[in-house]
Simulated assay, not measured.
Amino acid sequence: MDSNFSFQIYSSVHNLPSNWDTLAINNIFLSKDYLNLLEISAPKNMTCHFIGLFIDSELVGIALSQFINLSDVSSFGERDNCIKTKIRNIAFKNLSSNVLVIGNNMLTGQNGYSFSKKLPYQEGLLLLNKVAIELGNEFNKKKSKVHLTIFKDISETEIQHYNIPEFKSYFQFTTQPNMIFHIRDSWNTFDNYIESISKKYRDQYKRARKKADGISKRKLSLEEIKLYNTRIHELYMDVAKNAPFNTFYLPENHFTFFKKSLKDKFLFYGYFIDDHLIGFNTLIKNGDDIDTYFLGYDEKCQREKMLYLNMLYDMIGYSINKGFSQIIFARTALEIKSSVGAKAVTMYGLMKHSNPFINFFISKAFNYFEPKLEWQERNPFK
């Protein structure tokens, strides 16, 4: 690597270079505003660092890392109380509880770094590998030994750049795909979308809307989010604890901070029966994209009212009406998301265990802990 290349690790957004945001112009999730939010409202078991990459003294790359202590979380959720889950939790806590992620573990997609044209891609990756080693050494000194280092959510085109000796000891893996909904140029209104789907899926839409009778939906202001804060957290935890895998839980005031900081770029929708909050979803405007963020709901209402499916239709309607180009629906609930028209996009990751012996067997261990997900892809369009 050219000696002109260097990196700087920052533990506070306050210390970032003044021109940081010029490299975050295409991704809100690398902007100072968003990173500041992470600093003040990240989950308790997560420590964030912000990385500047330089040629001489010129900032040419920015990145995010997250150190996650999984021993603070029941990682495999409360839904599956079987022997395998218990074995997985014990193995995780003893062998893989401290994870260093180069990227953002709270989102789906490549939101971990951005390079200017002056920084060759592979040079940027070599620097980030050095950053991972440096951070590993720092955490080791604090008696928080890094077990796993992960480069997260790499696209099909980007993964080729990692084919260099420095990443040879990393295990390449795929998990659940990112579900992305592309908005066609011919759709000017939500009705155009409904017209483009087949009768079977129009019937699904009508059935969902009929079931949702009696539910009112409204966009919540900062004051209203504060007012419903306890109930919001309760609904979020109801969903989170039933997830098959968790690496963190959001703190109770997380959404308040988001609305306060991101203002109109952060949308919070509450779903009510009478004046009782039964569910919510959140969206973040990211340039031409809409990213779905966290949601929550009352499980009984969700089943009776097809609430989750109705939320998906609402997100699609909003995004079409406001002229966005795509919705990042992220992972989980793959089949229902594909039933409304989202397409699966494969994402890759790279992982390395700090113990060379365990690292040698990491592919076998990964396949045991992460069984292949069976799901049926749908195509709702005519």
Rank of each mutant, 00 (worst) to 15 (best):
H49Y: 12
T47P: 05
G323E: 03
T282H: 11
K152G: 01
L373K: 12
W20E: 04
K118R: 10
G52I: 03
L35F: 08
K32Q: 09
F294A: 08
D274I: 11
D213Y: 05
A132K: 10
I83R: 14
K211Q: 01
F115T: 04
L222P: 00
K143I: 05
Q160N: 09
Q8R: 12
S116D: 09
S74Q: 15
I316A: 02
T247L: 11
R231S: 05
S75E: 03
Q110C: 07
F181K: 02
Y162M: 04
E234L: 11
L283T: 07
M315G: 05
N94W: 07
G109D: 07
K260N: 15
H353S: 06
V340E: 05
K372S: 11
V146H: 03
D185P: 02
S325E: 05
M106L: 15
K93V: 03
C82I: 09
F245C: 10
S57M: 03
F50V: 12
Q176D: 13
E335Y: 02
F360S: 12
S3P: 15
S18P: 08
E224Q: 14
L100P: 04
L30R: 01
G296A: 10
D185M: 03
N310F: 00
G341S: 07
K206Q: 06
R303Y: 00
K226C: 13
R218M: 07
L309G: 00
K199D: 14
Y236A: 03
L135Q: 03
F76E: 07
L107H: 13
W375H: 05
E252I: 12
S65M: 07
K84A: 14
S6T: 09
G270H: 00
F171Y: 12
Y236I: 03
A342N: 05
T282M: 08
I336E: 05
A91D: 10
R378E: 14
Q66H: 02
R209G: 01
F257P: 04
I215Y: 00
G341W: 01
F167S: 06
N246Q: 07
S18C: 04
R79E: 13
E252A: 12
D72P: 03
F381M: 01
P371F: 12
N111L: 11
N4Y: 09
K211C: 00
T282C: 10
Q122K: 15
L334E: 15
S116P: 08
L30I: 08
N111Y: 14
N321A: 11
K117D: 14
K200V: 13
K343V: 11
I336Q: 04
N89E: 15
P356R: 02
S6K: 11
Y269C: 00
R202D: 01
L37N: 10
F360C: 05
F67V: 13
P120Q: 12
I40S: 09
S261L: 07
N286R: 06
G279C: 00
